[in-house]
Design a protein around this nucleic acid. Structure first.
Lengths: 137, 137
DNA sequence: TTTCATGCAAATGATTTGCATAGTC
DNA sequence: GACTATGCAAATCATTTGCATGAAA
């Protein structure tokens, strides 16, 4: 369901600032830092304050339109409606590799059976060493 | 290899503050926040400053004695010599569940084959919904 | 003795909050 | 018109840095 609809349903107003935030989250399928979002929104509506953006990201998070996660480079946000964004982050060079869903099917099943834990369907981040950094200290 | 030995080898001094940090990292197999470590160290050596602890955690990180990772509650540290500390974090209630290594064997293999990516052996954090929160929004 | 490590205080950077005003429904 | 959302400025929180002093090797 669209963010716009969800906002209305929950009695929140669809302001231009909110629209702008939703737009960039939609446009950019990759991860966005708060700073990225601030830059984009201020590029279109220069007078928008950071605090408004943080407040709205929190709101969108609360109503489930947005996901947020921690990467080695800080907090990142992405739209909840999009497909999966699984990532492999290299702890040496910080490179981020996109990763397909299929590798997770067995963990998914085992986690559910063993711990009753339902693994995130949209966004998994794993750390380790990429092919280039495999052997270096 | 022990942290103490590694420090000496790399020409760093083994100060009481460093010893204290190493001690608590050893004692506590679970994850520790910077704050936890500060509290412990200051409980024994009250005059130790936060900055000293941050500086030393960075040092121990650099020489590979300590691992650091991001959880929804902030940055956490743990000793590098200990066994694995895999965790399942519930994105609803923030509960953390310890998780065994065995569930990862197939992802580990597939990530290596498909992406040349070597998954962390000691510390994996996955997010999702715990059994209690499974169905709630 | 020489150099590294520490404590202190101040700086930083990201995020949060209080409050009066402006904008949406 | 009522009530929410915003901009602004100041507060907060964790972490970092500069610098003079103190303590390991």
């Amino acid at each position: 369901m669209s963010c716009e609809k969800t906002l209305k349903e929950k009695q929140f107003r669809l302001t231009p600032q909110r629209q702008m935030i939703i737009d960039i989250l939609h446009m950019n399928s990759d991860h966005l830092s708060a700073e990225d979002i601030i830059n984009y929104v201020q590029g279109h509506l220069p007078s928008v304050d950071k605090s408004t953006i943080y407040r709205n990201l929190d709101l969108l998070l609360k109503i489930g339109c947005v996901y947020k996660s921690e990467s080695p480079d800080g907090t990142i946000y992405h739209h909840a409606d999009e497909g999966h964004h699984h990532h492999l982050v290299c702890s040496k060079c910080n490179r981020t590799i996109d990763c397909e869903e299929d590798v997770f099917s067995s963990v998914r099943k085992m986690l559910k059976e063993k711990y009753g834990f339902q693994l995130d369907s949209k966004h998994i981040v794993l750390t380790g060493r990429c092919a280039n950094c495999k052997d270096s200290r």
